[in-house]
């Protein structure tokens, strides 16, 4: 069984490493993490996806044994179903939600992103394009909620061309810069794309 050592690493690194390891192994993995937020975030992430987790305290941190879910029913209730056939992707192409007054649009987008923290299911990935990238840049009120989503394993990808256009390339506060190749690939490989 594959073991990944995330001790000494801060969020969201342990969750992202766990996600990658699970995608590669497909069966089970062992994750070594520090106590506190890294342990909580990894446990929540794998449980959300329908995996079973067995936690053991070690001398220096925790060992999490992550294995596949036991029943079909459990799997059906989790994100595993969507993950097996592809990811659930949110495509955010504006910093406003819907047409109408600007003020209302900003408010609705911020509300939507904060509300994702309370919904039982979360997207696997959020792609930010056009003015949508502004939501992930320094000074945006949405950064706080996006950071929490990232810690829970949601991958955040912001369009580099767009950041450059807005002269915000060095001000991305959360997530990673991406290009149109990977954006297009993620969209085409997704099981579900929700465009905002």
């Amino acid at each position: 069984m594959k073991t990944i050592d995330c001790r000494g690493q801060a969020c969201p690194v342990p969750v992202i490493a766990t996600k990658k390891a699970l995608e590669e192994s497909g069966t089970g993995i062992r994750v070594l993490v520090d106590d506190g937020a890294p342990r909580e975030n990894v446990v929540r992430f794998v449980k959300n996806r329908g995996y079973l987790v067995n936690e053991t305290a070690e001398a220096d941190g925790w060992s999490l044994l992550v294995t596949g879910s036991t029943t079909a029913e459990e799997a059906a209730q989790s994100n595993v179903t969507a993950s097996a056939s592809g990811d659930r992707v949110l495509l955010v192409t504006s910093d406003r939600l819907g047409d109408g007054p600007e003020e209302l649009g900003y408010l609705l987008m911020k509300n939507f992103i904060f509300t994702l923290l309370e919904t039982p299911q979360q997207p696997d990935r959020i792609l930010f394009l056009n003015s949508g990238v502004l939501l992930a840049t320094e000074g945006a009120e949405t950064v706080e909620a996006l950071k929490q989503l990232e810690e829970r394993g949601v991958e955040l990808l912001a369009c580099g061309v767009c950041l450059d256009y807005f002269k915000k390339k060095d001000q991305l506060a959360v997530g990673q810069v991406t290009n149109m190749f990977s954006t297009a690939e993620h969209l085409l490989a997704a099981a579900l794309v929700i465009k905002l």
Partner: peptide, 8 residues
């Protein structure tokens, strides 16, 4: 749960 939108 780790962080929350509203803190104690």
């Amino acid at each position: 749960m780790g962080q929350q939108v509203v803190r104690e």
